[in-house]
Design a protein around this nucleic acid. Structure first.
Lengths: 414, 414
DNA sequence: AATAATATGTTAAAGTTCTTGACAAAGTTT
DNA sequence: AAACTTTGTCAAGAACTTTAACATATTATT
């Protein structure tokens, strides 16, 4: 136990052990006993009793029936009291907007998703988010007052202190807009704003393919490409919050032009848009391919290419193979630099599955140093399209739970 | 103050604040007062008095005369008691071996360097290190018993727990050899073993070009190329200790063959060896160049190319420009991924100076995303060839100082 | 079935480390 | 000289831990 997930504020935090214990309870699958907590935190069982009693008083955790296994008195298992309250997670992508309602144990109760265009700028986009949130609450017969925190992800670099994005490559009009301030002002609920790939790594770390790993990378392959990093057990944001921006690594200097103005960016050769573009090129070239029979070329998506590839269409398979190889080059670089234990491939395009994963694995094992390549596992996101929004929920819960835990013996409501 | 440099062991560490205060005293240039310590650590002045008294008792810190500046009682400045003891730093490179004797404030008292060949394998190499250490002690009239800790750097990935290198690309015969155990057995002094680039970043963080930065990368450009990373204020080693191995990133797939078996590795196009090789090729091609007049082509080094370039030799300038551009590609990738505040270029080749630095800066600003590129400064190592060995000394001091601080009121000797 | 063994959880006393509030100390400003 | 400002110390009390003993609830053994 030399780190804990909850980001420690600098001031006025008594009882750090209480917060550490809370996080261990949250993130241990199946719950954890007082004795086990004491062991993991290097504290006495007596101290643990006091800490747990504190937490029980706030009603954010509860005791559950013991699983007897070994000899000796069976432990009393502690878990988060899932019905203690609710939080909201919002995942704002480039082309979709999702809002989810979750309970205190991070289980999604209901979720709404709509197509979306982030280039409209902050005001209309935030208004859409608000509308969707209202709809979701009404549908579930809830009021805003019952929501204890909101977590939100956006596809751009975040200045966490200020609660805004800075110099985002794909969010025109958002630079410097006070997103968090705006939302907290409207809703009077604590909002935590994060990068979507960072939330993805958090979600997969908490409940997905990288559960509990200390060195984890999450590659979000959607229309754009971004990475979230969890290093030494903590989310890594970099000096100015723009860590993990791998979408514009130069992969092939002589490659196609990218939206960012440069050429041969990873995003321009392996992103969802790039895959669709290559499909259109194939059709235009007149090659025999299933793709021609899948509707108007302008509306082709990476998903269509994937389904054609699965049905044996060679040109489609080649497109995906190439995208995977390019991704592999970038990931091999990250593996050499970071030496992660797990790399999780997420985002819409990742749902292609092994067809994409295999060339990534091949390229990485060929291009990474032996030590790092052997240590790393490359997997598809278990949470599928929900990695980021579950990360947003985890963030919201971090705020809500630790805020309640702080006021010892305080009012159980609000 | 949400992190501290001293790596916290998991067990039996009372008084974490004492160790934090000690590190603040160590790494604050010009020393620090009790009041300032209390402010930086969010503790009361009263608590600080107690902690400082503890440290004063062990004699590892001392009070020094106050600098009066503001109104009010002038503070009593605390600093490390430099004459409390000595430590040894060892820098084992691919082609050189250095041993340095330092006092408790990390100042080098004396240093010996010899040419060296790490491919001889562990036994002869460690014997040479021992001989050099003995020579250094004799020369300075000291005994091994007066040395309180040893820090050592080697050019390969480290398993810190085991004190050995694992799967090193350029240290044949060393894989799995129990280096630390061997040395501690021989010398009966605590030895800390680290990667040389990691020590470089530590040295430059403590006393060099990245002083006090929380997000720092150190690129060691010697005959090989490696990077050391300091993220969130802590050295980052990765899951298996092989983080920062950028020497074998593929930069140009159609480039020259690398020693590692792959093609177009960064090391093969921008390392010291690569620069020397290109110089020989130029001479062989018969082009007019100053390089032909600099002795036998087989003995040409990167340093010769640098000196020719500085004297205006165009082919030499082109070689360095190209190496810088290649380095820039790799560094641009790291900047996009890590978003560091400072990148320090160190190692022998970095001594070329602006001739190398300029193409790096140009390439990085062209190939990195706006936000990250603006945030980063790229500088040459202030500690020059000594970055790593000073890092080794810092590591040795971490061991020695915190070990003494742990035994409260214990014996002042040993 | 009774007893032993084992592990969990609780309690009270004692020990550490911190904060609070008062105050002494040592300078600068008025 | 008096007022102000900041540093450093002291003593009392608060917060959090450990220690050591014990109660509790199972399984294992006799």
């Amino acid at each position: 136990m030399n780190h804990f997930f909850w980001p420690v504020p600098n001031q006025n935090v008594k009882n750090i052990n209480k917060h550490t214990a809370l996080d261990l309870i949250r993130f241990t699958p199946g719950g954890i006993s007082r004795a086990e907590l004491a062991y993991r935190m290097n504290l006495s069982r007596a101290a643990m009793t006091a800490i747990v009693n504190d937490l029980l008083e706030t009603d954010i955790i509860r005791e559950t029936e013991s699983r007897s296994g070994q000899s000796g008195r069976p432990p009393i298992i502690l878990e988060i009291n899932s019905s203690r309250g609710n939080v909201i997670g919002i995942d704002m992508g480039a082309t979709h907007l999702s809002v989810a309602l979750a309970d205190f144990s991070a289980r999604i109760i209901d979720e709404i998703e709509i197509p979306f265009d982030i280039t409209q700028g902050p005001k209309p986009c935030l208004a859409q988010a608000e509308a969707l949130l209202t709809e979701l609450l009404e549908k579930n017969d809830m009021r805003l007052q019952q929501i204890l925190a909101i977590g939100m992800g956006v596809p751009g670099p975040i200045a966490s202190q200020e609660g805004m994005v800075i110099a985002p490559p794909i969010m025109p009009g958002w630079d410097g807009y006070p997103i968090r301030q705006d939302m907290e002002g409207k809703w009077k609920i604590p909002v935590s704003l994060n990068n979507d790939a960072e939330l993805g790594v958090l979600g997969e770390w908490a409940y997905g393919a990288g559960r509990g790993e200390d060195h984890l990378a999450f590659i979000k392959v959607g229309s754009g490409i971004g990475a979230g990093l969890l290093l030494n057990g903590q989310i890594y944001q970099g000096a100015t919050g723009s860590a993990g921006e791998i979408g514009h690594l130069t992969i092939d200097e002589n490659g196609p032009l990218c939206d960012c103005g440069s050429t041969g960016c990873l995003e321009a050769v392996a992103g969802g848009k790039a895959i669709a573009r290559q499909a259109r090129e194939i059709i235009a070239s007149g090659k025999r391919t299933l793709l021609s029979s899948m509707g108007p070329p302008e509306e082709l998506t990476a998903r269509d290419v994937a389904s054609a590839a699965r049905r044996g269409d060679l040109p489609s398979q080649q497109i995906i193979l190439r995208a995977g190889s390019y991704l592999g080059i970038a990931i091999a670089g990250m593996v050499n630099i970071f030496n992660p234990r797990v790399v999780v491939i997420g985002g819409g395009v990742s749902q292609i599955g092994d067809l994409l994963l295999q060339p990534i694995r091949d390229t990485v094992s060929r291009r990474s140093l032996a030590g790092a390549a052997q240590a790393v596992k490359i997997n598809t996101a278990i949470l599928r399209r929900r990695s980021s929004i579950i990360g947003a929920i985890v963030q919201a819960l971090s705020t809500a739970l630790h805020q309640i835990a702080d006021k010892k013996g305080g009012d159980v409501n609000t």
